[in-house]
């Protein structure tokens, strides 16, 4: 059998890692909803949720419980299978991206060295892009299955938005790949540890990537698929109970994952600045790395929220204008300029 060739301990170790990563990203997404409400409140001179538990820390649990106990409504004219498939797909694709992310270097455990990455695929970046573009299916299927015009409009907007911004994102990525010369996220982090962070080489590329990440996560100013004041709830108008919860949750997981990816690609991943990890013992170095990554992620998540509570939503034609006529030419220019520089200096 094929399985016998693989070390059984490796399988167990990876399974444990998967469980940890998935539950950790769920918990983080849970507390991101709480953080979002708190940040919104603080930026608007309010207090935010402070009733459930100390400082309102149990609020996400209360929200989750509430969603579980709400009545599930499946509209009569919806196609039931797709209606249920929608949120499940959204959630699944949101979780799948975390598989190739290096969370830290490696830890020594009972004499085994365990890499803190579920799998180091040599095309990690491509995998991320593939899964992220699958994410729109959850929204599209759910909105189409709802048999509601507002949902459908939301779904259409989501699809066209994600397709438009994926292009610019991909092209800005190509420039980065030309600099790093690798598609593996782990190798990128190692390179950045040894030299400097990629943001120094690719500031314009990062800006384009950041804007596109906002659009891919359907966050304000690109939250047109939801657009609660023009489309009621957009693609999740007809959803209730935990299915709605899955959609909202998937958005926060996406936010978390895209923060991790931005930190990994442009800000050195688990690299703690001004600390030479090679001098520390591997376990401590791994902990420092995880802490550094989480610190960067928290900064990015705060940025997501900060922007959300500052900028109003784009109009639809503005969104398309920005995507096709500004970001894509800019990304192409960035790619050509990077290529030119590499060619001229022979790198």
């Amino acid at each position: 059998m094929m399985l016998q060739a693989i070390d059984l301990a490796l399988v167990i170790e990876k399974l444990i890692l998967i469980v940890i990563v998935i539950s950790a990203s769920l918990v983080i997404a849970m507390y991101t909803t709480f953080a979002e409400r708190k940040v919104a409140a603080i930026l608007q001179d309010r207090r935010g949720p402070n009733r459930a538990g100390p400082f309102g820390l149990l609020q996400p649990l209360a929200d989750g419980l509430k969603l579980f106990f709400k009545e599930e409504i499946i509209p009569n004219f919806s196609s039931k299978f797709l209606f249920i498939l929608g949120p499940a797909l959204a959630m699944m694709t949101a979780m799948m991206t975390s598989a190739v992310i290096p969370w830290g270097d490696k830890i020594e455990f009972f004499g085994r060295s365990v890499a803190l990455q579920i799998t180091d695929v040599n095309i990690g970046v491509l995998y991320v892009f593939g899964v992220v573009s699958l994410g729109v299916y959850g929204i599209m299927i759910g909105s189409w299955a709802s048999n509601n015009k507002f949902s459908l409009l939301g779904g259409l907007r989501a699809a066209s938005q994600i397709i438009s911004y994926e292009l610019a994102m991909g092209i800005s990525m190509i420039a980065l790949l030309m600099v790093t010369g690798t598609l593996s996220l782990k190798e990128m982090v190692i390179q950045q540890q040894q030299t400097h962070w990629n943001i120094i080489n690719q500031p314009l590329g990062f800006l384009i990537f950041l804007i596109c990440a906002f659009a891919e996560c359907n966050r304000t100013p690109f939250d047109l698929p939801e657009a609660e004041n023009e489309l009621i709830g957009g693609y999740h108008t007809e959803y209730s109970s935990m299915k709605l919860g899955f959609y909202l949750f998937a958005e926060y997981i996406n936010m978390f994952i895209s923060s991790v990816i931005m930190a990994t690609l442009f800000f050195g991943g688990y690299d703690m600045p001004f600390v030479n990890e090679a001098l520390l013992s591997p376990n401590i170095a791994a902990l420092v790395g995880i802490a550094a990554l989480m610190g960067k992620v928290i900064c990015f998540i705060f940025l997501f929220m900060w922007v959300r509570w500052t900028i109003p939503r784009f109009r639809y034609d503005q969104l398309m204008h920005l995507g096709w006529r500004i970001l894509i030419p800019l990304a192409l220019f960035n790619m050509l300029a990077t290529g030119g520089v590499i060619l001229y200096f022979g790198k």
Partner: peptide, 8 residues
């Protein structure tokens, strides 16, 4: 604008 919201 972000500086304004931050000052809050």
């Amino acid at each position: 604008g972000m500086l304004i919201t931050f000052s809050h």
